[in-house]
């Protein structure tokens, strides 16, 4: 009779994370993912957290903006793209000439009623995930045209959803960079797989499908 080696008890997800991740800050982050997973009833599908982190990391650090500028704010945006401020350092310098390759729409400048349908169409042509930055006073709320500007859309959130507002007239390049960092931080806390995985976990729990 040969005895099987004593089976070690299954390790918990938390233990596995503690073994695999040495950086305390990273560990805290992944443990918070785990807490969220548990609180959302997804059991120990521990793979979700690191995979989402990887996806978010890739998304946040490779934001390709759409090449278009509507007014003076675009000059500041060009400065951010050029060598002095160098947007490329943060992975967002690949300005694309077509919305189908872009992730980020920086609406830089006054949007007129005549231009509004074009802006909407460009937004619709960007594949998901997509992000919109309202740059400058005009795009936030009409700016100097708010009272007598019969031709100006009083804020682009009336025509497309906006993720980040950048105040200024025009905003300094630093302000645009700051907005980019804030957007990247926000993308870092996105849950790109949450919907898919919570469905899977639900199936697992109800036994309606193989995990």
């Amino acid at each position: 009779m040969s005895a099987n080696p004593p089976a070690s008890p299954p390790r918990t997800a938390e233990q596995m994370l503690r073994e695999a991740i040495t950086d305390p800050r990273e560990l805290t982050r992944y443990l918070s993912y785990l807490d969220r997973i548990k609180s959302e009833g997804m059991g120990t599908s521990v793979m979700v957290a690191p995979l989402e982190a990887a996806i978010n990391w890739a998304r946040a650090n490779s934001l390709w903006p759409l090449t278009f500028g509507l007014a003076c704010c675009a000059i500041e945006m060009m400065a951010v793209g050029a060598s002095r401020f160098d947007l490329d350092r943060f992975g967002a310098g690949a300005f694309r000439p077509t919305p189908r390759q872009a992730d980020l729409m920086i609406v830089a400048g006054t949007v007129t009623h005549k231009m509004a349908p074009r802006v909407m169409r460009l937004y619709e042509q960007i594949p998901e995930p997509k992000f919109v930055m309202a740059m400058g006073a005009c795009t936030i709320g009409g700016g100097p045209y708010v009272k007598h500007g019969y031709h100006v859309v009083k804020g682009i959130d009336r025509i497309v959803p906006v993720d980040i507002y950048v105040p200024g007239c025009p905003p300094r390049p630093e302000a645009l960079l700051d907005a980019l960092f804030k957007l990247q931080a926000r993308i870092g806390s996105d849950r790109p797989l949450a919907a898919r995985w919570s469905k899977r976990a639900e199936n697992e729990l109800t036994g309606s499908a193989r995990p």
């Binding site: 009623h113 005549k114 509004a116 349908p117 007598h148 019969y150 031709h151 859309v153 009083k154 009336r158 025509i159």
Partner: peptide, 24 residues
């Protein structure tokens, strides 16, 4: 202005429309 715009905005008595193509 767009072809379907109504009125001539630099007239002193011009009143801006409440909305244009659904955008208020």
């Amino acid at each position: 202005l767009p072809e379907d715009w109504e009125g001539h905005p630099l007239r002193k008595d011009y009143a801006a429309p409440a909305a244009y193509h659904g955008v208020t």
